[in-house]
Amino acid sequence: MSFESFSEFIAMGGHGFYVWLSYAIALIVIVINIVNPARQKKKIVSDLVRRLRRENKSS
């Protein structure tokens, strides 16, 4: 451990704002890049299911 206490860990030697902001943005960017395609897939599949049902009904 390079910190003595938890409050020191949060403070990051006075650079806490910069360090934590960087890591927060990184987390958001990574989560977006996983959640977006996952939600997209759900939508694609449900659209395809709907289209398939319509086709089956008309034929």
Binding site: M1, S2, F3, F9, M12, G13, G14, H15, G16, Y18, V19, S22, Y23, I25, A26, V29
Partner: peptide, 23 residues
């Protein structure tokens, strides 16, 4: 964030490198 040593010049702001360089 917790175990890497801090930089003797930049202190703890150096830890941003672990996001900056990989990205």
């Amino acid at each position: 964030l917790a175990f890497a040593p801090s930089d003797y010049q930049q202190g703890n702001s150096f830890r941003i490198i672990y996001i900056h360089v990989p990205s």
